[in-house]
Amino acid sequence: MPCNYDLLIIGDAVVDISLNIKNFPIMAGTTHISEDMEIYPGGPAAMAIIASRLGLKVAFADKIGTDIIGDHLVKELEASGVNTEHIIRENGMSTATSINVVDSMKNHSFLGYLGAGTMLDSIDNKLISDSKSIFFEGYNLVHTGRTYYTILDTARKANLQKKQVFFDVGPLISEIVGLDLFIDYSSTVFLNRDEAMAYSKMNLENTIAMLGKKGNADYILKLDREGSVIIKNKQTIPCMALKTYGIKNTIGAGDAFDAGYIAALLSGYKEEIACMAGNMVASLRISSCIRSIPPINEIIGRIIP
């Protein structure tokens, strides 16, 4: 039977509040005034919006607060066509929030709060069955608890049902409890350069060689200006980077890449094309607003004229 959703995203429904400063560090007792401020869904929530704009049918499952930040998050997701009926509002708790501080050199720092996102109790089995693929990140996996075990159980069930399981490990990779178990349940694992080397404790060349010998998952390494690398069936396939102009900052580039890659893969394109699509969507994300991202067929049309 056909699935109602192409992609089910689980956990880390976060709102980003972005502010600018001239330079780091921010010292105690000092005051900094940002020239502008942006409040917008971040992390997997931004990825959900991008994936929906690319043409996927997306559902989001998480727990958020009944605060105005949660109201804003749901409004933005629904405006982009993301199904939010599996987002639970928890009375008396706050929605996950990230304060993003960016300096004039595009360096950034995050101050985050997980809020109600740590209290996700379960995912309906029917929702898993009704989704072609699932996606989760590593932020809620650094401590065992409700959300941790919910994501673990969902990944296990999706794996048993032969669903595509996408896992973006994230910057807290060294703190994730039972990391290899989540990798074993995944069909595709996304890592950036620093995360991959933190995992292997080796240089990039040896890391790529090690991942090529490990498990059944595909590994997608996001290497910024050097493009990306696919590690699949003990083969390594490089994907060239795209030149990007007018970079506002690089926050959200990884989530945008994931959305572009997944949208292309689920649309039937090979991993190499999916990687190029991911690179293009990431480039668009950091040089313009999310709402400017076109459907996946237009992205592919730019890659394959």
Rank of each mutant, 00 (worst) to 15 (best):
M119Q: 11
S80W: 00
D124N: 15
G70V: 05
G170L: 12
F257S: 01
G92V: 14
V101Y: 12
G43P: 07
V229P: 01
D16C: 06
A263G: 01
F136R: 07
A196D: 08
P305K: 13
A256C: 08
I237W: 11
E85N: 15
Y245H: 12
G70D: 10
H143G: 01
N249Y: 03
S131M: 07
K75S: 08
I123K: 05
D62A: 12
I9N: 07
K234Y: 10
Y199Q: 02
A48V: 11
A256L: 08
C289N: 04
N297Q: 14
T207D: 02
I230E: 12
K214R: 13
F136C: 10
S267G: 13
N20V: 01
C239A: 15
E38T: 12
R291A: 12
D36M: 10
E38F: 06
K201G: 12
K106S: 14
V177Q: 13
F190R: 08
I176S: 13
I17K: 07
E137K: 09
Y148V: 10
S122T: 06
G117T: 11
G112W: 08
R156W: 09
D36K: 13
I10S: 02
G55T: 07
H32N: 15
E205P: 00
V82Y: 08
K162V: 06
I64G: 03
M27I: 13
G227Y: 05
L284I: 07
T30C: 06
M37R: 11
L120A: 07
T150M: 05
E226I: 03
G170H: 12
T250H: 14
R89F: 05
Y219T: 10
I50C: 09
C289A: 03
I9F: 10
A28G: 03
Y40H: 13
G227C: 14
L181N: 10
F24R: 05
N83S: 11
I9R: 05
I123H: 02
N140A: 14
I299Q: 04
A241N: 13
G138P: 11
I304R: 08
N233G: 11
Y219V: 07
I33S: 11
E298Y: 01
